[in-house]
Structures are given as C-alpha cells and as structure tokens.
C-alpha cells in the first residue's frame, strides 16, 4: 500500500475515533455539570471526561497534517493511542482491584457493585485504536519511515 493511502486511512480513522472519544468526554462533563441525567451504566467523572476530551482532541488535531501527508502528522494518532492505551490499562487495573474488593475481601463499601459499572469508555474505546496501531507499526517498523528510537 502506498504511503499516501495509509496516511489518508489514518486521517479518516483518527477523525472517527477522535470524535467518539470527544463525544464520551463531553457526555461525562455534561452529566457531571448536571446538564444531562446519568442514564449510563458508569459514573460521570470530571477528570475522566477531561482525559477523553484531550485524547479525542489530539486525534482530531492531527487529521489535516495526515491528509497533507506530513510525517509529523503521525505524532497525533501515535500519542493519542499511547494515551488511550495507558488510560485503558489504568481502568483495567482498577476493575481488577474492585473485583478483589468485592469477591475476595468482601468489602461492605462495594455492596451492589457489578463489573459492568467498571466497563467505562476508556476501556471499551481502547480496542478501536488497534487499526491505528497496525498502520503505525507498518509505517514505523516495517517501512522504516521513522527511526524506531
């Protein structure tokens, strides 16, 4: 596949995933600010919303440079993906910790807790970055467009 084509795919996919992150970030903020009612299975969190907005923002802000075929445009999906995976790992660890509290320790503060409450946007959005990881790997490692240091 030509570079130009990969850059275009990356641009469109970044726009798509970025808007998704942005949407969930905005929803969390609106719920937190009590503009919207919380009909979601997870609780709204100010900083979590901020994180999603930032990740979404980084994805979207790289779109133009990717469409122009600039190598530096790769920075945006790269960093946004690293952040999204880092945050997903964090919430996965929190899910494991909460499971231990509920199933092993039997902490009474966790009465009524279910795993579904911890399946937050940070977790279910992260797998969507897999195609970006593949395309970046192709360009950086396979095609050696950038030195892997």
């Amino acid at each position: 596949m030509e570079y130009e084509k990969i850059f275009k795919i990356l641009a469109f996919y970044s726009a798509f995933i970025g808007l998704l992150y942005f949407y969930f970030g905005l929803i969390q903020w609106l719920i937190f600010l009590k503009v919207l009612k919380n009909n979601l299975h997870f609780s709204a969190d100010l900083m979590s919303g901020f994180t999603l907005l930032v990740i979404g923002g980084i994805y979207v802000s790289g779109v133009k440079r990717l469409l122009d075929g600039e190598i530096k445009g790769l920075s945006y999906p790269l960093v946004a993906t690293i952040l999204s995976l880092g945050v997903a790992l964090l919430f996965l660890l929190i899910l494991v910790a909460n499971s231990i509290e509920y199933y092993v320790i039997g902490n009474e503060d966790y009465a009524g807790w279910t795993i579904i409450q911890d399946i937050r946007p940070e977790l279910f959005l992260a797998p969507l970055s897999m195609p970006i990881i593949y395309l970046l790997w192709k360009l950086i490692i396979k095609e050696k467009l950038v030195k892997p240091i």
């Binding site: 190598i71 920075s75 945006y76 790269l78 960093v79 690293i82 950086i140 950038v146 030195k147």
Partner: peptide, 13 residues
C-alpha cells in the same frame, strides 16, 4: 538523520 520515534512523540508531548 531523519525523524525518530522520540521526535514524533515529542512533537505532541
């Protein structure tokens, strides 16, 4: 010298 992965990450970080 061309761009490195570090340069790419730093561009946003």
């Amino acid at each position: 010298t061309t761009l490195t992965l570090t340069d790419l990450i730093d561009h946003v970080v």
